[in-house]
Structures are given as structure tokens and as C-alpha cells.
Design a protein around this nucleic acid. Structure first.
Lengths: 133, 133
DNA sequence: TTGCTCCTCACGTCACGTGAGGTGGC
DNA sequence: TTGCTCCTCACGTCACGTGAGGTGGC
């Protein structure tokens, strides 16, 4: 189809990243856009990989971790033990994320209390906590 | 009491950080250990602050963000306008944290699905997903 | 010609890691 | 003297941010 390849600008718009980030990922061998002279043209595969990269980053993986994971995905057909490893790493990550969510909830409650205290303190000094001044 | 003050080594053991990290936080004015000549002695207050620093970091806040939050927790001494400012910044942080919690929940659901998919794929290849090998 | 998007260096930043080389007290 | 812990530079690293200076096509 005519819209198979995307420019760096189109990629940035679609994935909410900067050009620097995409060039950086290419330098780190996470993406492999077609080179038309100097210009880069990103394929469907690049877009799929970028999606996984950004997701991996949200899960707290380093780019090097992600690069290895992407290699495993491409060696999908012959990589049983590799898939096992990714699977078990993902499970570890999941429990870490659940822990982090619980801590985050605690911290939110904690900060809410502190903010209430701040508002009370300001009011006790005759001030309006939420004034625009 | 006699165990009020802790050395950098004791702090590192208690909080699972390196000496470099504690010195770095002091340089960035997040911690204020007593200086006995060259040596540092960390107070109860430093320990309370470090706890909050490490928690903030797990939530992805920058050290500068955290420094401002810490001011909120010791805002008693500050003037009215200072307290106002810290109060409104804390409210900003709170909404960021709520956003982050929502994103984290999304990511958890996302990863749970992928893990299920991985387990199914492994089983379809006649493998036990949760084997120890 | 003017705008727009793209490019390549290459230095800056943030939060530390990691030696190098030295001090002080049991 | 030997170990141990502490210290101060100061360069290295990771994941980019941010100009500087230039190209190519509508």
C-alpha cells in the first residue's frame, strides 16, 4: 500500500517521541529504518518494534534489556528456552509493578494527608489555601 | 540515645544504597548530615528524608521534584508565602501521582495479558510455563 | 527567495558508578 | 604494619535534550 513507509516526523507524531529518540534507537540497533540517502523511512516492522520498546520502557527495562528481548521475539520459531526466559522475567516484572502500585497508593494517601494539613495550617493563619495569588 | 547518629556505612546497609548516592544527595541538598571533620553522621531526620527520597524515586520523580516535596514535609519553619508555594506544588505532584497510578494500572493489565499469552504459547508447544528448568 | 523538514556532529544533563589516591583509628 | 572504613576529585555511563550549521524539495 502507499502508506507503508513513514518519515521520522510522522513517526514522532504517531508515537509521541522526538526525532532524537528515534535516531538514538537506530544508533543502538533497536530500529532499522530504510536509508534513502540521508533520510530515514520507517517500516511496519519498525513501528511494531517501537511499540514494544516504549512498552518495555514503561515496565522499567533498560534499552539493552529491550534490545535482547526484541532479538528473542524475532527468533520466535526456534526459541523455546528463550521464550521461557522472557516469560519468567515478565512475571518478575509484574510482581515488582504490583508492589510499586501499592507503594504509590500509600504515597498518595500520605501526600493527601500532608496537603490537608498544609491547607489547615494556611487557614489557621488567616490565608486562603487555593487563592490564585 | 546512643544510637541516634549513623555512619555512611550503616546508612548504606539500612537503605540498600551506595556511599556515592548519599554523598550525591548531600551535594544536591537533599540530606544534611553532621560533619565531624571529613566524616558524615546521619541523624534521624536524614533517615526520614532518605526514606521519602527513595520512595519518590521509585515513582519516577526527579531529585529536584523530591527536594521540593521534602520542603513540604518541613514547612513549619517557613513563611506564609513559602508554605503557599510548596502547598500548590504538592497539589501538582499529587495529580501527577494519580495519573501515574492510572498508567501503572494500565501497564499491569497489559503485562498480565502478555504473560497469559506467553503461557498459552508455551503450553501449545508442549512445555510447562512454570517449570524450574 | 522563504518555509518546512530533514540531516550530522557534538556538547549538556541527570543520577549516579567507578576507580585513583589518600587519611584516621583499632 | 595490616585491615578497615572513610574521604575527595574526577572521568565514565545511560538515555536522551539541545543548539549549531547545513541540505533538499515544494
Amino acid at each position: 500500500v502507499s502508506e507503508e513507509l513513514k518519515t521520522i516526523g510522522e513517526m514522532c507524531a504517531e508515537f509521541q517521541v522526538t526525532p532524537r529518540t528515534l535516531r538514538f534507537y537506530e544508533a543502538k540497533e533497536l530500529l532499522f529504518p530504510i536509508r534513502e540517502g540521508q533520510k530515514r523511512l520507517f517500516t511496519k516492522t519498525d513501528r511494531a518494534r517501537l511499540k514494544l520498546i516504549l512498552r518495555g520502557k514503561r515496565f522499567g527495562f533498560s534499552l539493552e534489556d529491550i534490545r535482547q528481548l526484541l532479538e528473542m521475539y524475532s527468533a520466535d520459531e526456534h526459541g523455546n528456552s528463550q521464550l521461557q526466559e522472557v516469560y519468567s522475567k515478565a512475571k518478575d516484572r509484574l510482581s515488582e509493578m504490583r508492589l510499586q502500585r501499592d507503594e504509590l497508593n500509600e504515597a498518595i494517601v500520605d501526600l493527601e494527608e500532608r496537603i490537608k494539613w498544609g491547607a489547615d495550617t494556611l487557614r489557621s493563619r488567616g490565608l486562603d489555601p487555593d487563592s490564585e495569588t
